[in-house]
Amino acid sequence: MIEFDQVAYSYGGGELLSELSLSLPPASFHFLTGPSGAGKTTLLKLCYGALLPTAGQVRLFDRDVTRIGRDGVALARRRIGVVHQDCQFLDHLSVAENVALPLTVAGEANAAMESDLSELLTWVGLTDRAHALPPELSGGERQRAALARAVIMSPDVILADEPTGNVDWDMSQRLLRLLIELNRMGKTVMIATHDLSLIRAAKAHVQARVLRISNRRLQLAGADL
């Protein structure tokens, strides 16, 4: 699905990530951890083509990300659901419209999809908030709306960047359960987090690979988790 081969990323003259090799096979579950500023978000952005590697190769669905152009990246993103910590929404559209945005952009929004959207909003517990505007949502509601938007296209891969960063423990467990449920449905999931308790809680329910970024390099986390 997503593969890194000796990837490096530099910015402002400094190398943030180097010699990264990584493969996200179908239906796998990954945690990406490391201290703040280690490069977790940068790595996720490389995963969905928001950043291009300065060395090495990133392949999205077997295609070199540097060779497919911006339109190719855009099409690849329709197969990758992304949940950001800051949950970017279009504030002038309702929650329902924001969740349906990937379908709208892909030209697949139609009346037949209404029931899917309805089910999705029920699944994330936002049925009653469908008419609300994003600024009216709580942190947890925003994260759930972002998750619903990330999965509405039934993507192959879901990337979540600190999805529980702005929510309380109960809500973080609820979001984690939703992500585990998606993984059981065959989706590849990668969660970037510095919250080790979240990783420990997840490992009780799912076989997850934990990767740690340390000194610009990626390594498999040890038994301390």
Partner: peptide, 8 residues
């Protein structure tokens, strides 16, 4: 809610 979804 249905109206909102229809609008979407």
């Amino acid at each position: 809610m249905r109206a909102d979804i229809s609008a979407a």
